[in-house]
Simulated scan of single mutants.
Amino acid sequence: MAQTYIGYSPDVEVIGEDEERLTAEILEIMASTNRKAFERHRHAVRDAHAKSHGFLKGELVVPELPEHLRQGLFARPATYSVVIRLSSAPGDIHSDTIPAPRGMAIKVIGVEGERLLPGDQGGNQDFLLVNIPILSFGTIGKYRQLIGLLEKNAQNPAFLQRAMAGVARGVEAAVEAVGVEPGATLRGLARDNDHLLGETYHSMAAIRFGDFIAKISAAPLSDNVRALTGKDVGTVGDSTMRDLVVEHFREQGAEYQIQAQLCTDLEKMPVEDAAVLWPEELSPHQPVATLRISPQDAYSPARRVYGDDGLSFNPWHGIREHQPLGSIMRVRIAAYERSVRYRHEMNAQPRVEPASIDAIPD
C-alpha cells in the first residue's frame, strides 16, 4: 500500500492568542543577550550559534527522485554550490570544555523560486540544522521559558556550566534507567564532546516540502565521517572543535546524506510542537540529495572574517516551497532580522549574500 503524505496548506499552522506578546518578550531577551555579549567581546556575535568551528565550500547533488520527493529545490536533478557553517549553539562564545549542541547551517546558492521574505534579493536557500532531533520547549510559550533558562546558565562561570552539564548527564542516565524518554533540552545540556563531524543534524521543526510537510536532516554518509559518529575526542580545550574540523579537511573530504521525513499524521507528527519526535515507523527519513565537501582550509583568517562578520544564515531566507512552519519558526522571522541588523551595524560590516561560490574566500 502506497504511503499517504499530508498535503501542505496554510491551515496546518495555528497562531496562538498570545504569540505576539511572547514574540516581543523573546526578542527583548535576545537583544539583551546580544548587548551583553557585545560588551564582553567589544564585537557583536550571533544571538544563537555564536561560535563557529569551520566554514566549508561544497556541493549539493540532487539525483532523479521518486515523484513525491520532487519538491522545491529537489524537483529535478541538479548540482548546487553550497557554503556550510559548523558551530556551537549558545549565543555567546564559550570554551569547548562546556558541552553544547552543535549546528550545521547550509546555504544553497542559486535556487530559483518565489522568495519568502519581501525585499529578499538573494537567490539562495538556507537550512539550519542542529544535532538534536527535537526541541523540548517546542512551542513559543515553552521557548519563552527556555531562553530564560539558557540566559541564566550562560552567565554562570565555566566550571558551573560544566557542573550543570555533568548533573544533566547523571539525571539523563537515571531517567533512562526507568524507561522514561529524557527531554531534548536535557540531552542538549548533557552532550558529551563527541566528534562534531560524526553527528546527524536535524531541522527540529517542520518546513514546507513543496506539496507536503517535512523535517530535514543531514547524516554522515562517507565512511570517514561515519567512523566519527559517537567518537570520544578525548581531552577538550577551548577550541578543540575548530581544530578537529580544520585537521579533518586539511587532507580529507566528507559526504553527508540529506534526508526528508514527510508528515503522514498531523496528530502524531505535529507542526506546531517541535518537541514531538516524528516516529520513524510512521514515516522514515528518505534520501533526497548528497552533500559533498572536498579537502580545504576550513578556517582561514579571510574565511573566518567573511563567515562570522559578513554571512548570515536564516531559515526564512529561501523559497516559498520550503517555508518554515510552526510557532518556533515564526518567531525567527523577526528574531533573525533583528540579530543580523544589530551584528552588522555594531561591527560596521555590510551584510553579504554570495551570488556564487567564488565569493567565499579560500
Rank of each mutant, 00 (worst) to 15 (best):
M1L: 11
T4V: 07
T4A: 00
V12D: 07
V14N: 00
V14L: 02
V14H: 05
D18C: 10
E20V: 08
T23R: 12
I29T: 06
A48Y: 13
K57Q: 12
G58C: 07
G72C: 05
F74I: 05
R76H: 04
R76C: 00
S88W: 00
I93S: 01
I98E: 06
P99T: 01
V108Y: 03
V108W: 00
G119N: 05
G123V: 09
L129D: 04
V130G: 06
I134K: 12
F137W: 07
F137A: 12
G138H: 01
I140M: 06
I147P: 08
N193W: 02
G198D: 13
R208I: 04
R208F: 06
F209A: 03
A214V: 06
K215C: 14
A219L: 10
S222R: 00
G230C: 02
D232Q: 05
T235D: 14
G237D: 06
G237N: 01
S239A: 13
Q252E: 15
Q259N: 15
A260W: 11
D265T: 09
M269F: 06
D273L: 10
S283N: 12
H285T: 14
H285R: 15
A298H: 12
S300F: 04
N314V: 11
R320G: 13
H322R: 04
I333T: 15
A335V: 15
R341F: 05
E345T: 08
N347R: 03
R351M: 14
E353S: 10
